[in-house]
Write a protein that binds this DNA or RNA. Structure first.
Lengths: 212, 212
DNA sequence: GTAAGAAATGCAACCGAGTAACAAATCTTC
DNA sequence: GAAGATTTGTTACTCGGTTGCATTTCTTAC
């Protein structure tokens, strides 16, 4: 009942999903570079040009899963309660995602999620594409920061925005790495929380007090 | 008189240089995506496989110029005088590069340098490759940081290292942008210095005092 | 219901980056 | 000089991604 769920729209969604599912399962089974788009298209029973009408590149076949989170940090900042600083809102949001075991935080020991992160982190072209997405996200976040002083995003806004992205990425990767090397989930959660506090303290209070 | 400058070595250096020069001049003239490697190989009078024996990818044909600066930040930190904090050493080094109008700082209004930066910043695949180099650099820098406490690079080391890379990249890009939109060099220098101070203050003293 | 128009698909051919195989040419070393 | 190692060019290939065009499939207006 979304809207005008015509037959055409419905089939498009089905096709898109069939392609994405074929891609993800093949990638997880054989690795990103060991699967050709022709193979994916064949398994999804579409032609190669059709596949590329749905996804702009081979990498997007996997990374479209991050599309939901596009611009999330900016929204968190804009929607924060009065009296809460932007960084505090981001910190709280990150702790929430950890508590929910949201895959985006890296804190999920579901084998499929672990394998997914492994693909993303260890395949250079995937990591590069993801970095490009995050750069766009950082721009949006910088603009959210800039609403505080009502102007265009200045240097400090942009720096802090990309630094936040760095923090998020580093924390997620560390957490995934601990889980993938056998650390039990509850302990990984504890360490992830501690790391989150350290990282946001570093952002907020600066490096001086750590002696750098 | 470098070492054993045999004929073979000499010709290799010449060939490598011929390829790189052909590539850069074609890229500057027509844009990265408008030049094929076949075209570059033809102008350098080598075959395509030979070209790829000298450079691993099309992007490296341009980005090999950054190879000299590989690991520079880490060396600066390791070579700092006693009593100087790592961040202070990096800040001083950056101000030096600005004063020297080193292209790596973005502060050069030579048309060829401006065009070069334009290529790097505005061609997605070049920016992505450069980001990968900088990630490697950040790892080296994190290890340099870690020598302070004698252990392996911890979370704070790695965060600060990548944040420094962010700062460097952002500052260089801003400076290039000002120059390319017509700001005179002396004024661009002044603003670059001010931005450098702000950025390193943000790193060192934290975001708290800026009200984030 | 049906016909006209729009949208999605498949097919075949193509482009460009990058690689493999192998033979020919070139440098080194003894 | 000859033997051995390196470098090179040629040809042909794989793979990601695109283009043109004819065909199918859905929508919409009558």
């Amino acid at each position: 009942m979304n809207q005008a769920a015509g037959l055409r729209t419905l089939k498009k969604e089905r096709t898109r999903r069939a392609i994405a599912d074929a891609a993800v399962s093949l990638f997880l089974a054989k690795g990103f570079d060991q699967v050709s788009v022709a193979e994916i298209a064949a398994r999804a029973e579409v032609s190669k040009p059709t596949l590329f009408r749905y996804f702009a590149s081979k990498e997007e076949l996997l990374l479209h899963r991050f599309a939901d989170h596009q611009g999330e940090a900016g929204r968190v900042v804009l929607a924060r309660p009065e009296g809460v600083t932007p960084l505090a809102a981001l910190r709280a949001h990150h702790l929430e995602r950890l508590a929910a075991h949201d895959p985006v935080s890296g804190l999920s020991d579901a084998p499929e999620v672990l394998a997914f992160h492994r693909l993303v982190f260890e395949t250079p072209s995937l990591a590069a594409h993801l970095a490009a997405y995050q750069a766009a996200d950082a721009t949006a976040l910088a603009e959210a920061f800039a609403t505080r002083h009502g102007g265009a995003a200045g240097l400090a806004d942009r720096l802090l925005a990309t630094q936040y992205q760095t923090v998020r990425q580093t924390l997620a990767r560390d957490t995934w790495h601990r889980l993938t090397t056998g650390l039990p989930l509850p302990e990984a959660h504890r360490q992830a929380v501690a790391d989150t506090e350290l990282a946001f303290d570093l952002l907020a209070d600066g490096a001086a007090r750590l002696g750098y």
